[in-house]
Simulated assay, not measured.
Amino acid sequence: MQKKFIIQRFWPEKDKIPYWQIYEIDCQEDWTVLDALEAIRAFDPTLTYRRVCRHGVCGSCAMNINGFNSLACETRIASLPKNIKIRPLPGFPIIRDLVVDLERLYQNYTVIKPYLITSSPPEKEYIQSLEERHLLDGLYECLLCGACTSACPTFWVNENFLGPGIFLQACRFILDSRDKGFNLRKEILRKSDIWRCHGILNCVEACPKGLNPFQAIMHLRKILLFGGKR
């Protein structure tokens, strides 16, 4: 099965602007896009991209494939047309080729204090009921791959907007029954431009794990308006 890969290349130290490079290779039916990139890199070792786990767990290989943000390791070649256009995640500075600088994403992550805040060190483990634990479903699975945040136009133009993935993470900690940082995180969210989300749902479409950052944003807005966690 022959496929044509049209890949955006850019090395800031030698290129003035990004350009497209075409590779035509024979692919196996069960290959993913990441498998194809590995095959290309076997004869062009200058092609640069991130990858670690190859199993959709780490989120490192997030990139834009035929106009949609996806994980290369989970995108099957057989599901794509003959011509496959690959570029780095939009909205982030390019380090090289398909590798982007996610520093802003990680800095925003630290803003929401992504850890359990307690009033005093626990004497034993915290116990959660099944109901309390189920409140975290659809939140804790986030990979922080940046796919949803990269798809958000508000994130592109508003430096104060934390991004859909970060709001989803904030919701995860606010709803955690073991956490005591509710009031602190509420104040952080008040300054986060959360109301600038326009609900176009790009983030929902982009999430490789099928999560719903927009739903988390709406829940956080409800908390800010009416108080309470639920």
Rank of each mutant, 00 (worst) to 15 (best):
M1C: 05
Q2K: 15
Q2C: 02
Q2R: 15
K4E: 10
R9G: 04
P12S: 07
E13V: 03
K14G: 00
D15Y: 06
K16S: 09
K16R: 10
P18Y: 08
Q21Y: 07
I22C: 06
E24A: 09
E24P: 00
I25L: 14
C27T: 15
C27Y: 01
D30Y: 12
E38S: 11
I40C: 11
T48E: 15
T48Y: 13
Y49K: 11
V52I: 13
C53L: 09
R54P: 11
R54M: 08
S60Q: 11
C61K: 01
M63K: 04
M63T: 06
I65A: 00
F68S: 11
S70P: 02
T75H: 08
I77T: 07
L80F: 05
P81N: 00
P81L: 01
L89S: 03
R96D: 02
V100S: 05
D101V: 03
N108Y: 04
K113V: 08
L116A: 01
I117Q: 06
T118P: 01
S119G: 10
Q128C: 00
E132L: 04
D137F: 02
D137H: 05
E141P: 07
C142S: 07
N160R: 14
L162I: 09
P164E: 07
Q169D: 09
A170C: 14
R172P: 07
R172Y: 05
I174E: 00
L184I: 15
R185E: 00
R185H: 02
H198M: 11
G199Y: 10
G199N: 12
L201W: 01
A206N: 11
A206E: 11
C207T: 09
C207K: 13
L211K: 13
L211C: 13
N212K: 15
P213T: 07
F214W: 14
Q215F: 10
M218W: 03
R221M: 13
R221Q: 14
L224A: 12
G228R: 13
